[in-house]
Amino acid sequence: MEYADIAERVGEARAAGAPLSIRGGGSKEFIGRTPQGEAFDVSSCRGIVDYDPSELVISARCGTPLTELEALLAEHGQMLPFEAPVYAPDATIGGAVAAGLSGPRRPWTGSLRDFVLGAVCVDGRGELLRFGGRVMKNVAGYDLSRVMVGALGTLGVITEVSFKVLPAPRVERTRVFEFDEARAIEFLASAGVTPVPLSASCHLDGELYVRLSGSESGVRAGEEVLGGERVEQDDDLWRSLRNQTHPFFAGKLPTWRLSVPPAAPPLGLSGACLTEWGGALRWIRGDHDWEALQATLSTVGGTSTLFRNGDRGGEVFPAPDAVTRRLYTRLKESFDPDRILNPGRLYGDL
């Protein structure tokens, strides 16, 4: 599938007034609100477009599986630092960008959005647009490639993305501490102001796991500063957090994703809380009253998303204020005036 084929299909859908539900590997169908419209599979638009390891840039078509891209980078000792979730082996980079999710390394090296350098996309008029580029620094024009990140395909069909990549750390090791939640948050806050090469954290059920990444000597020095016990076979833990295959995420109960200032104290919500990102990302399960949850979070500067399960026909992201909502609507209409692309996936009225 070529970019022109995608543009043509969107043009036809617009002419027919028939909305499209854009689909890559289909591994993130559960993200956002229930998809509406005719399924439009773009996974056959795939392949690496450009990769020169000494440039620290890789460009690939939307349907390229994340695993394929990451395997190629690993051959050259490089990585996509944001550890986007791979819910199924055929998860694509287009889907990763549309969902905008980042994994355990995010607080220390940056989010998926931070590493997007450029994107090619098809807007709701069927027009092929190129934003950003394949260079590290580029401030020409509005940063519309980053605006695609997390927009759940409501602004354009992403056909190609260029990412900045980084050298992969030579060594990664994990330490474990027996801390309750409050102590873990305090510990991470104080570790966060010291130059220790942290690269992941997880607190659950009285145990805090911390990953260190870097050179052998740097990691060893970090281990001495932090203390705790070394954990062997730690890859499985971090993979299970990245892909939410950890037993904490099992079952059909609603999963809530809470984004908070990292040092926010324990929120005192019912049930277990799994804390990642040095305290900045907290997961809870079960039925919660949305308004009560949002009220609790707003006291600490946080926000909540109904991440998985629960009522996907209702809103799953908190409502923006009236002025922001108006800007969202106008922004959506600027890209997709007839609401052909993933209508209702992000908010019911977009």
Partner: peptide
Amino acid sequence: VTVDGELIEVGGPRLDSPGYDLLALMTGS
């Protein structure tokens, strides 16, 4: 402050926020 004189908050004291990334859009605009 928007052109109409209305005040909006974009992003927050945390690592991400739901909705369109107006923080990226405003930066460099």
